[in-house]
Simulated assay, not measured.
Amino acid sequence: MRGGEIIGGRFKFKVKVVNESPYTINDVTVYILSYPRDTLILKTEDDDIFFSKIEPQGFRSPSFDFLPTQDCVRGEIVAGVSYVDASGKAHTLTTESYTIRAVCDLLQPEAITPRGFELKLKELESGEILLKVEEWTPEEMQEKTLRVLSDSNFHEVSSDESITDDVVHFKISGWAKGKYTRKNVGAEIFITGISKQKGASCRIRVAGEDDAMILPAIDDLKERLSAYLCPMCGNKLTLDNVEDLKKGKIVRCLFCNVSIGR
Rank of each mutant, 00 (worst) to 15 (best):
F13A: 02
S21I: 03
F13C: 00
R10W: 02
L33I: 14
T69Q: 14
F255Q: 05
P36R: 01
S259R: 13
R10F: 12
Q197C: 09
K179N: 15
L239D: 13
I41Q: 00
K196A: 12
E110L: 05
A200S: 14
F59N: 08
R252Y: 09
R252W: 03
S52G: 06
P231D: 04
V28E: 09
N153S: 12
L146K: 08
A212V: 01
L124C: 02
P231N: 10
D220G: 14
G178S: 06
Q70I: 02
E209H: 10
F11D: 01
T92K: 15
R10Y: 14
T44S: 15
S82L: 13
D151R: 02
N26I: 06
S259I: 04
I100H: 02
M213S: 14
C72D: 08
M213W: 08
S259M: 12
N184R: 02
D166H: 08
P62E: 00
T44G: 02
Q142G: 15
Y228I: 04
V251Q: 10
G88I: 04
I100G: 04
T145N: 07
L106A: 03
S173H: 03
H155Q: 05
S173D: 01
G174N: 06
I250V: 15
I218C: 12
K249M: 06
M141T: 11
T145F: 13
L107H: 04
K222L: 14
E20F: 10
Y228V: 06
N184Y: 06
S195K: 14
C256I: 03
K246C: 12
G208C: 05
L237E: 12
T192A: 05
F190I: 13
Y83M: 07
L119E: 15
E188M: 11
M232D: 10
Y98G: 01
V242L: 02
L237W: 05
K14S: 09
K183Q: 15
T94Q: 14
V242S: 10
E20N: 12
S162L: 04
V206L: 10
P109G: 11
D85W: 10
E45S: 13
C256N: 13
D211C: 05
G127F: 03
K53I: 04
G261A: 05
G58K: 10
D219W: 03
I41G: 01
T39H: 07
K89P: 01
R10A: 05
I25N: 04
A176W: 00
L107V: 12
A200I: 06
I41H: 01
T29R: 15
V30Q: 06
L239P: 03
I32P: 03
I172V: 09
L42C: 13
D71W: 00
F255W: 02
C202S: 13
C256T: 08
E134K: 09
P22V: 09
T137D: 13
F11N: 00
A207E: 09
I260C: 08
S87M: 08
C233H: 12
V78D: 01
